[in-house]
Computed example of a mutant assay.
Amino acid sequence: MCIMAMAWAAHPRWRLILTGNRDEYHARPAAPLTHWDDRAGLIAGRDLQSGGTWLGVSEAGRAAIVTNLRGYGGSQPDRTSRGALVTDLLTGVGTYADVATASLAVFNPFNLILVDADRAHFLTNRPQPLRALLTPGLYGLSNGALDAPWPKTLALKAALLEWMTTDAEQPDRLFDALRRESLPEAGIAPASPSDAPDEAAASPIFIRNPLYGTRCSTVVAVDRDGQGHIMERRFDHEGEDSGETRLRFQW
């Protein structure tokens, strides 16, 4: 994922609202959002190149999302896929299943948020490994530091806040903000160009590009009773809709 906004324990009805776009090379194969056959209780899309996921939920009461962290050079292909960290943390099974002890240094630069039944964790491995608990509130994350005031991050957080403070009844309305292609003027533009060579140095929330662009948008909504929805909209190399999946789950 390349941008996300999250409200954690910040609304009287919703325990978790998470919205995000995955930006990736269109040539990289991926499977749509679904229940995984080989990982009990896991609901996520799947990176068919490395086998992990970028965002998902678990019927064990977890949600997780990872973004690349830029400014530390390009990815090193011999490192473990960041998707493996997300998958293990979601399912509680595997080499990286324990949030307190998982080795963070073996991955390319990343930011990760993991939500479980009553906590939200933030993990990163640059400039050094860090594990922290997040207090209830509204957060934004792209490819820089947590809550860095990049224009598109501020815009997505503002859209989520507006939804929360108006009707907050239909989570699928959050897809509108994830589809914005204009760059807002507020905030501080990223100080360095992207590690993806064909991505704009300061990009909008939705990237329309035939080589590297927004592949899918996802909205996760879990209410105070643990009833959850996860919705994914997918896009082709021209930025046009190519499919949608909506699934329910229970925490």
Rank of each mutant, 00 (worst) to 15 (best):
P149K: 08
R79Q: 10
T67F: 04
D88I: 00
A201P: 11
K157Y: 02
P136V: 05
A10F: 01
N143F: 03
A40N: 12
S192D: 08
A27W: 09
P190E: 08
E232T: 13
A64H: 00
P193E: 14
P32Y: 08
M164D: 02
L112P: 01
M231L: 12
A120L: 06
V93Q: 14
T166R: 03
I205N: 09
W36H: 05
R234A: 06
L114K: 00
S75V: 05
I17V: 15
L211Y: 03
G243T: 05
S75G: 15
A102M: 02
D38P: 05
D147W: 13
S103P: 01
I43E: 04
F107Y: 00
G144T: 12
T53H: 01
G137R: 10
L174Y: 05
I43V: 14
F249L: 08
V57G: 08
I230S: 06
G20H: 03
R173L: 15
S194I: 09
A60K: 14
A201Q: 11
S182W: 14
E24T: 06
Q250L: 12
P77Y: 07
L90M: 07
S217W: 04
T135H: 07
G71N: 13
R46L: 04
A7G: 12
A100E: 14
H11N: 03
R246F: 02
E244F: 13
A31I: 06
T91V: 06
D225H: 11
W36G: 02
P197H: 12
I230V: 15
R79E: 13
P129T: 02
W36T: 09
R22F: 05
A177G: 09
F175G: 10
L33C: 09
V66M: 00
L55E: 04
P210Q: 07
W150A: 13
Q128A: 14
T80Y: 00
R224C: 11
S242W: 07
T165D: 13
F122G: 03
M4P: 02
N143K: 03
A102R: 01
K157Q: 14
D198M: 13
E244W: 04
R208L: 08
C2S: 13
P127G: 03
L156K: 04
A186T: 06
W8A: 12
A100L: 05
P204A: 12
I207M: 14
E244T: 07
C2H: 05
D195M: 10
R13F: 01
L146E: 05
I113D: 03
A40I: 07
P171R: 10
G20I: 05
A145Y: 02
A5T: 09
V86I: 01
D23L: 12
Q227G: 06
E238M: 09
D167H: 12
N21Y: 02
S194V: 09
I205K: 03
T80W: 00
D225Y: 05
W36R: 10
Y96A: 01
R46A: 02
I207T: 10
A44L: 02
T245R: 15
